[in-house]
Design a protein around this nucleic acid. Structure first.
Lengths: 342, 342
DNA sequence: TTGAAAGCGATACCAC
DNA sequence: GTGGTATCGCTTTCAA
């Protein structure tokens, strides 16, 4: 099955180097048409496919990218991956996907992908606010870009959503509806996205003259169970919030579960906003008000950026912050009139 | 950064072949301890990492697997991938993930992964009932396994859920609750999973003496929008069903949306069962009754099977059908008493 | 217009 | 015990 260049050469009665030229080089090459024809048919007959290893060894590039995600089970990452993979494929690149489970020890493995020259570059969706891997990558001069999560101190090579704007949109929406007791179930505070959304939430409250209540912020981890627990906690507060801004949709789903267990209704008893606009959030009951993030587009942009880096062209935009928008749906409404509830 | 074997050899004052032996071969090798020490430290100091391309070329294996999914955005595939990737990583393998978007033309690309010797084997989650790619793989003698979807005529090399049992569990559950007018929104009928679930549904009705109504079967595509449309269609029937078995959870979510739009309530007005038990289906309102499928485990088993194939050991179990179980939750209940509804 | 030869980075067989 | 050398499959300079 696996025909080599030499075998094709043998069949065509020419040297391997000639075959190489014909098969690869510019079509405007000085080769007798007849020879070219012979080579082409021989290659076809033998079903010739170049050996990737030999190619990489010689050309020093693998045409393979590596992508790291913290948890492929969180639907935002398949969303991003989809965009990455599609643009990579269109450019003749494949992508090795690695799931880190937010574990730092696995991260060093990925630098290996690079040092072993298994991939040409890396797309990281795993960046931590203080990331040794990224630091190593930077000083190693390796090609990489960050997607979704940024990293403090890195002002280029990233594609992320406008987390601040999104959080502001969400919080202001609640304020405009008349809410004053607005809680936030945040993302993990070792992630840039968690931090940014929290910060914008605080600032937004401040700008509207609403005092910040630290009891109204519960740190989550972007997953349902924690969202549920956090919501339970908030409901047990002496003065429970009338609205909650969740750092992502998964958290919001968990929160919805907690509300239901308490027999509370959305949006009558409490308003809820999510973040990401996962494909099925509009099918929830009630449909979730959330911040739309164009995930595949972000993936595509990140991949394009990495490909630029690999091509050696100066980065077009040095970093990209993708705009987001609020999807107003059924999970938010004005607070109940009867004042302080409970 | 990229130190070669030869450079390590130079620093240690030995030949490259000696370095190779020390770094790779059995620890019980005939090498003077002092020499070994010198080599080891030289390698460490230079941060030596073997070049993957050179290794593949020489050893004829890449330690890389390829996995093909039809749509990474459907959460069952990240679920399976998670299991695949974890076991692959544990065995020192990486995995290239390709999203085919159910497009056949992209499939040939993956055979290339193999013929270009870019991967050692393939895991296909994309199999169609009549699949040219799989056929090509078989006659080429390439290492591959199927996961989730099987293929008629292939009685080995697959890991799939027990689709028949699952569909039977779902249908019988509805029958036991007292439903007689039970519809099915199927998967695409060019997939084995779609076909199998439909077949078991029919047989189950038959076994319970319920006549099969072809109007009660609508072909879907495993996605929300189609589930929604299909449900709308079913509700417009002169004699609408009182229960619907959906071929997967995404379809069920779409169906729930359609019900809501009509002002119908679950499970009072209609019972709904899904398939897969995606992580957040229990957080739906009402929580979805569905068939649990252990996705990561299936991925892990498939990967193990492929690794066995690569190791040349005879396949342990030649194929694996993973048991499933019904998760009875809030979306199913006995039909309304008042007879024929509407 | 085409062929010969060197070399990418590693392994493994064969000497010594 | 350790070194030399051929080889994996391909590209690319240099000659002819």
């Amino acid at each position: 099955m696996a025909a080599t260049l030499r075998q094709v050469a043998g069949r065509a009665g020419v040297d391997a180097s000639t075959v190489s030229r014909v098969l690869r080089a510019d079509p405007a090459l000085a080769v007798r048409p007849e020879t070219r024809e012979r080579i082409l048919t021989a290659a076809r007959e033998l079903n010739y496919r170049p050996n990737a290893a030999a190619l990489s060894l010689k050309l020093r590039q693998t045409h393979t990218l590596g992508m790291l995600v913290p948890d492929i089970t969180n639907p935002i990452f398949p969303g991003i991956f989809r965009g990455v993979e599609a643009t990579a494929a269109a450019a003749g690149y494949r992508v090795i996907l690695v799931n880190t489970d937010e574990a730092r020890d696995r991260e060093s493995l990925f630098v290996d992908l690079l040092t072993e020259k298994r991939v040409d570059g890396l797309i990281l969706a795993t960046a931590l606010t203080d990331d040794k891997t990224v630091a190593a990558l930077r000083e190693g001069g390796y090609p990489f870009v960050l997607v979704n999560r940024r990293m403090p101190g890195l002002n280029e090579r990233y594609v992320s959503a406008d987390d601040e704007a999104g959080a502001r949109l969400a919080t202001e929406h609640l304020i405009r509806l008349g809410h004053r007791r607005i809680a936030h179930i945040s993302g993990p505070l070792f992630t840039d996205t968690g931090l940014r959304r929290l910060k914008a939430y605080r600032e937004c409250l401040h700008n509207h003259g609403i005092p910040f209540e630290s009891a109204y912020v519960v740190e989550g981890d972007f997953r349902e169970p924690t969202g549920q627990a956090a919501m339970q906690h908030l409901l047990e507060l002496p003065q429970p919030p009338t609205a909650v801004f969740c750092a992502n949709d998964l958290t919001a789903i968990g929160a919805m579960s907690a509300l239901r267990q308490r027999g509370l209704r959305l949006p009558e008893d409490l308003s809820l906003v999510g973040f990401n606009d996962l494909p099925w959030t509009e099918h929830l009951q009630p449909p979730l008000t959330t911040v739309h993030v164009p995930l595949p587009e972000m993936g595509a942009l990140a991949c394009t950026m990495l490909l630029q880096l690999l091509a050696g062209v100066p980065l077009q935009p040095v970093a990209i912050v993708v705009p987001v928008r609020l999807m107003e749906r059924g999970s938010t409404a004005p607070p109940r009139r009867e004042g302080d509830g409970r």
